[in-house]
Design a protein around this nucleic acid. Structure first.
Lengths: 355, 355
DNA sequence: TTGAAAGCGCTAACAG
DNA sequence: CTGTTAGCGCTTTCAA
């Protein structure tokens, strides 16, 4: 007689938290009924509902989401949104993350965040790690990624996981949804602005961060426009690393003639406002007339630039909106299966006093 | 004859991703061996290792972490760190999150982030949601939480989940590890500084954010110290909501006599640098002498304050360090079972020109 | 309206 | 050094 296995091994329950089965036992039903109550209460008889509600209270039940996600791996998913951004401390991305977090609030989705430090290699590693959680959606910054990352993202998308690239919007995309704007276009507008004001020799002071691709693209747009208008223009690179305002201070000498200390350009555009502010402060310290001797133009519209004297001309960008729009699009996709579509968000060149 | 169940139901595989079993089949071993290879390679024969490595490559296997976490719920945990902060866009917390994310980098832990908008009610809801993921550790901001949140945190800690309160360090704690500093003490130092400089009537301009508890505590420390020194001091509240620099501008009139427009106080301390900067800018616009007619003191050491003229006196706080220290402590606890202990981090009053 | 059975993908325990 | 077995806590499918 083949006696069944002896149930001898020691059980390995989770950390003492109430499970569905515990609640069910307390309520005198089976676990599936409690599960149903939690997800579609209308399908449970009112009387049963009341009993379950009480048992839920009594046990202090907290659903185990790993188990839930695992069990419904086929249909739904984890309800986790993975977001990969270059830097959290950079206020530009911090606001985007804020918009994303706020927009996801109440959707039942959690936000998993990773910060790559502007390294696409690190981004790849983080992407691999986050993919292990089966995120319901993936948000990456920009359209520059390692080949392997692109593969992973494409696979995820093929399996139905929404993939959104934020902060960029460009023809040459990889087939992912883009929510952002065209940086080359912004760069072009920056050059056009300075040219229209009559500045006849320009510099673009690029970020010293090697993988700040969007800053580089703005630079390319800037230089292309200057070239087309037959205006002299050069690309310079701010020193790195270090605090960006300080980097801007140190970048100013690049714009001056070594011997005389006089500006070698009529106007300079910067990869971001922090650099521009640093340069502006240093220029003031050296008693250069801004914009008389040297006009300055930033990017990002940081609080600091508005308060300096002269106030910094800059480009206002939809930092918060990018996050909000991504959250909105994801919710529509996750909740109603709405298709994702590219969104080109508006930006604006704000001419203040420095140009 | 009791024929076993007919295996008729349709299977419900996950989303077409390779599983351990797939890799194992390809390598000609069983899944447990692959699992072992992934976690403790030394325990697998070198020859087998090679085969598995190849199979891993070929299949593009990505481990399913929900399944992993579920299976080892008893012992380890999810390797997810839940962090609850008041605001991501606030640069002070953004840097803390950056320190946390960087510090967790390479630990195999993911960061789940939630931003409560300075509401302990919302924090509670978010805490409940995050707890469903069985986080390996929980980080909350400050020591003020709803009663229910405190319950949940205490339960988690009892089950062995590290709970850290960041940004605060206070006797009256709830038994969780604290990494931060004493805000009343900072407030006291702010008052002492102004008193030492000879200012004989003081104001503390508190944040208009009702649940910015730490700002309120600094205010209490400030007022207590003034009282003890028998110096006149009042608490005022900056208008809300809105952008903080703007709020600071609007707060300035509170410090002036309505009729004459002259300062009603000799010196004012602010809940944060943004408020202080706004007030400073507005004071300059009104041609008040700073610090001659009115001395100003901020908190947080934001980039802006350093650049204004006069440069803002302020309190430098360990924004980044708090996150780094929390990450370090968690890694030590998670990896080597090191006990968590409170950390009182240093801050410094920086007297610049505005006081 | 409720339940039984099976299984998501992985790992712990216990052999061999 | 490798495999077998059982089960983490939940949801799906099917049956009553």
């Amino acid at each position: 007689m083949p006696t069944p296995v002896k149930p001898s091994r020691q059980p390995r329950r989770g950390l003492g938290r109430a499970t569905l089965a515990d609640v069910a036992a307390q309520a005198g039903v089976t676990s599936i009924t409690v599960s149903r109550y939690l997800r579609e209460p209308e399908r449970v008889a009112p009387a049963t509902r009341a009993v379950i509600a009480r048992a839920l209270q009594a046990t202090g039940y907290v659903p185990n989401k790993q188990a839930g996600a695992l069990a419904s791996a086929g249909s739904g998913a984890s309800r986790m949104v993975a977001a990969l951004i270059p830097s959290i401390a950079n206020s530009i991305f911090a606001e985007t993350v804020q918009g994303l977090a706020d927009g996801l609030q109440g959707s039942g989705c959690e936000l998993m965040l990773a910060s790559s430090g502007y390294s696409i290699e690190r981004e790849e590693a983080q992407l691999r790690a986050l993919l292990g959680w089966f995120p319901s959606a993936i948000i990456v910054t920009g359209r520059h990624h390692t080949a392997a990352s692109l593969d992973l993202l494409a696979q995820a998308q093929q399996r139905g996981t929404p993939v959104i690239e934020i902060w960029d919007h460009h023809r040459d995309a990889h087939g992912f949804t883009q929510i952002g704007f065209d940086h080359a276009e912004v760069g072009a507008a920056m050059a056009a602005h300075l040219i229209a004001r009559g500045y006849d020799s320009l510099a673009y002071v690029d970020s010293g961060v090697a993988e700040d691709f969007r800053a580089h693209e703005r630079g390319e747009g800037f230089l292309a426009t200057a070239r087309r208008a037959r205006v002299r223009a050069r690309r310079l690179v701010a020193p790195q690393p270090g605090e960006a305002i300080e980097a801007g201070r140190l970048a100013l000498p690049l714009l001056l003639e070594a011997k005389t200390g006089k500006p070698a350009f009529a106007a300079a555009a910067f990869a971001n406002d922090r650099l521009a502010c640093g340069a502006l402060l240093e220029a003031r310290a050296r008693r250069l007339a801004i914009p008389g001797q040297l006009a300055l133009l930033g990017f990002g519209d940081f609080a600091l630039g508005r308060q300096l004297e002269p106030a910094l001309s800059t480009v206002e960008v939809p930092r918060l909106e990018i996050g909000q729009a991504a959250a909105r699009a994801l919710r529509a996709a996750l909740e109603h299966g709405a298709p994702l579509s590219d969104q080109r968000l508006p930006w604006a060149l704000i001419a203040r006093q420095s140009s």
